[in-house]
Computed example of a mutant assay.
Amino acid sequence: MGGTHSSLPSVPEVEVPLYDLCVGKDICTIESYVRNCVDVNKMEGDLKETALQAAVRNSEYDFVKILLSHPDIDPNAESYYRNTPLLEACRLNNREIVRLLLSHPKVDMNYLSPLGSACDAGHVELVKELLELDGIDVNSENFKTPFYASVLRKRVEIVKLLLNDERVDVNHLHDGKESALHRVCGYHSDFEMLNILLSSDRIDVNVPSGPEHLGDSGHTPLHIAIRNNHLHIVERLLSEPEIDLNKTNSVDQTPFEQALRNYDNSFVCALLKHPKLTMDVERLSLFLRYSTDKELVVLLCGALEIPAEELYKYNETMLLTYVNKTTKKSAKAP
Results as ranks from 00 to 15, higher is better:
3 G>C: 04
3 G>W: 01
5 H>N: 14
7 S>N: 13
7 S>Y: 14
8 L>V: 04
8 L>P: 00
9 P>S: 10
10 S>D: 11
14 V>S: 11
15 E>P: 02
21 L>K: 09
22 C>A: 10
23 V>T: 05
23 V>N: 01
23 V>P: 00
29 T>I: 05
32 S>I: 04
32 S>Q: 02
37 C>Q: 07
44 E>R: 06
45 G>N: 08
48 K>A: 07
49 E>A: 14
50 T>F: 08
53 Q>S: 15
56 V>A: 07
59 S>P: 00
60 E>K: 12
61 Y>I: 10
63 F>Q: 12
63 F>Y: 11
65 K>V: 08
66 I>S: 07
75 P>R: 11
86 L>V: 01
87 L>G: 14
89 A>F: 14
92 L>G: 06
92 L>Y: 03
95 R>I: 14
96 E>A: 11
97 I>F: 05
98 V>W: 02
101 L>H: 04
107 V>N: 02
108 D>G: 08
109 M>I: 13
109 M>K: 12
112 L>N: 06
113 S>V: 02
113 S>I: 02
113 S>R: 00
114 P>I: 09
116 G>Q: 11
122 G>T: 01
122 G>Y: 01
123 H>K: 13
124 V>P: 00
127 V>P: 02
127 V>F: 06
135 G>C: 08
137 D>C: 05
137 D>S: 09
138 V>G: 15
143 F>E: 12
146 P>I: 08
146 P>C: 08
150 S>C: 08
152 L>I: 03
155 R>E: 05
158 I>L: 08
159 V>F: 06
160 K>Q: 15
160 K>L: 14
160 K>C: 14
168 V>M: 02
173 L>Y: 06
173 L>A: 08
174 H>W: 11
174 H>A: 13
178 E>G: 02
178 E>H: 04
179 S>A: 09
182 H>M: 04
183 R>Y: 15
187 Y>N: 00
197 L>K: 08
201 D>S: 12
201 D>T: 12
206 N>K: 05
206 N>R: 05
224 I>N: 02
225 A>N: 03
228 N>H: 14
229 N>L: 13
232 H>K: 07
234 V>F: 10
235 E>T: 11
237 L>F: 03
244 D>E: 09
248 T>M: 07
249 N>A: 11
252 D>G: 05
252 D>W: 04
253 Q>H: 00
255 P>S: 09
257 E>S: 03
260 L>N: 01
261 R>Y: 03
265 N>M: 09
265 N>W: 02
267 F>N: 01
270 A>M: 03
271 L>W: 13
272 L>M: 03
275 P>W: 10
275 P>Q: 10
281 V>L: 07
288 L>N: 06
293 D>I: 05
295 E>W: 00
299 L>V: 09
299 L>F: 09
300 L>N: 04
302 G>M: 03
303 A>W: 00
308 A>G: 03
315 N>A: 07
315 N>E: 06
318 M>S: 01
323 V>Y: 08
330 S>C: 15
332 K>M: 15
